[in-house]
Design a binder for these strands. Structure first.
Lengths: 138, 138
DNA sequence: TTGCGTGCAAAGGTTTTGCATGGCA
DNA sequence: TGCCATGCAAAACCTTTGCACGCAA
């Protein structure tokens, strides 16, 4: 926990470049390792985990926990962090699709929960579960 | 998925009684197994997992996934199911406290997400993560 | 009696860790 | 040169699964 990297190693640079090249994309550790392997870049799995933890602590990427039996996802946050605070994630329980929703009503609700109920929602960590349109219609 | 139990076995009864005796409490599989073992009640771990899945599908208990590296938690929902459709759960990321919120703004939001975004939120599965008042003030 | 539930042990999948080696500053 | 990071393999951890046996209806 709260790991911070001091050296700027080759592996860290490569990882960051990979994230920068794939904004708004969810990537698992496996996908990252596969990518590296297929490009003949050496970066062990343990290093990927350790660097990802460090990048999360540095606020450079974001970690998603969709559910406990599938691997965690990581997403590049980029420069402007504000946008990500306004984006909520909705996960369809049936087809597994992940939907990004940016809506002022969600932000209004955040405000209300804070003022009215004393609870500060963290959209980076929160996933709304339910059914997407297609799955509901079935 | 969508496992439903047809028989009313001894193990299922014991599990249900344990939940009924501990409302508004989060319990992990390990805790349940430990409790049973310390009371000399035979109920294998696999059975606990399977019955818990069934009880979740029956709407009798609720499953929480706090994060992928800690075990899932289960909570008794009680008799009156309607209330639970209107109740959202907020979990403090710092102290772990669970807050039940019943608020029309949350229901309004559900309506809006459905009409405006085509996403039907399932409050039984959804947990809003963030900070409670005390922890935020620190 | 029929088939569902149980229990054990093993498998499965993700993440963490120990330790020797390699590389940044 | 002094640490820190890497990489491999093994361990740790939670959950699921296979299969023979037992029990509810």
């Amino acid at each position: 926990m709260t790991v911070r990297t001091k050296y700027r190693t080759k592996q860290r640079k490569i990882l960051m470049e990979y994230f920068e090249a794939n904004p708004q994309t969810h990537m698992t550790v496996k996908e990252i390792c596969d990518y590296f392997r297929s490009h003949d870049i050496s970066c062990g799995q343990a290093t990927v985990y350790r660097q990802l933890e460090s990048l999360v602590n540095d606020g450079i990427i974001r970690k998603y926990v969709i559910d406990e039996n599938s691997p965690a996802c990581y997403e590049y946050l980029g420069e402007k962090e504000e946008d990500h605070d306004l984006t909520f994630h909705c996960k369809c329980e049936k087809c597994g699709k992940l939907i990004h929703i940016q809506c002022h009503r969600l932000q209004d609700l955040q405000q209300h929960l804070k003022k009215g109920h004393g609870f500060t929602v963290n959209p980076l960590r929160t996933v709304l579960y339910g059914l997407c349109e297609q799955c509901r219609k079935q």
